[in-house]
Write a protein that binds this DNA or RNA. Sequence first.
DNA 1: TCGTGATATGTTATATTATCACAATTCGTG
DNA 2: CACGAATTGTGATAATATAACATATCACGA
Lengths: 142, 142
Amino acid sequence: MQTATTEQAPTELKLSGNRKAVYMLMQQQQRALSAYEIIDLLRPQIGRIIHPMLVYRCLDFLLEKQLVVKLVSVNKFVALPNDLTEPGQCLICEICQAVTFSASSNPLQQQKRKIAATGFKLNQQPVEFHGICASCQKDHTE
Amino acid sequence: MQTATTEQAPTELKLSGNRKAVYMLMQQQQRALSAYEIIDLLRPQIGRIIHPMLVYRCLDFLLEKQLVVKLVSVNKFVALPNDLTEPGQCLICEICQAVTFSASSNPLQQQKRKIAATGFKLNQQPVEFHGICASCQKDHTE
DNA sequence: TCGTGATATGTTATATTATCACAATTCGTG
DNA sequence: CACGAATTGTGATAATATAACATATCACGA
């Protein structure tokens, strides 16, 4: 099993074999994936049985390094877009499962400041909004 | 198995036996409960094996009628406080699991309007914020 | 280069949350 | 009362996640 320096991760973070495979897969897919989807997608690449634990461990690491983010409402994981240093919010379509990230807008930052003022210490994790995207609204008006 | 008219539900909605038991339990507990916690708490009352399916069905119904809300990030369900017609947001403490609801504040409503203006049709469900409550911050500064 | 502690990985088992599908019972209305 | 709709009972399975033990690999200092 080779150890390779990753070309994709910021600040030259070294990723071991498995972790790199998982991360690159997530970057390629460009969508939110459940752990089991990752397992299924990885299987052809690795040519060996993939235990869930393998993937969860990799994800734990990638989460810790903030290379990926977990969408806690849908139990999916997604590689952070490279141009987005702070995923303040995301919109999750219930129909097509598309996920759209964006940085915190002013009202959301205001909201977070209000919450902080109550003494509640917020985590750094995107605020998740659920609904139906414009495309699916069109598709489902028939 | 008796059919009883519920005294607690708004607009005289009739709840069947199981559904009433689940709903009343949730109201009594006044905290967010996982389905399995509900099962464990119900067992003494019902005196029969409780299948998860029973509870999930009841929850599905109660969710549909908007008597309870699901905290999707923590897979828990909570009876809506009676004085809160619109649970706009909730704060979830990662340490003690306390959940605090409140109506949408102005910035959050603003945020929702911005999102709606993009064409994304938001669901009616609370926005969940994660962090550490003031109490747990005190307890954990030792 | 070797040894060792730290880290990563392999493996088995289990926990937690949720849904599917079929059957039986109860409810409500004509 | 009959019948269709709704509710419930039951067994099985799916999806997500973690615990625990063992082994292998990596990195660093001597």
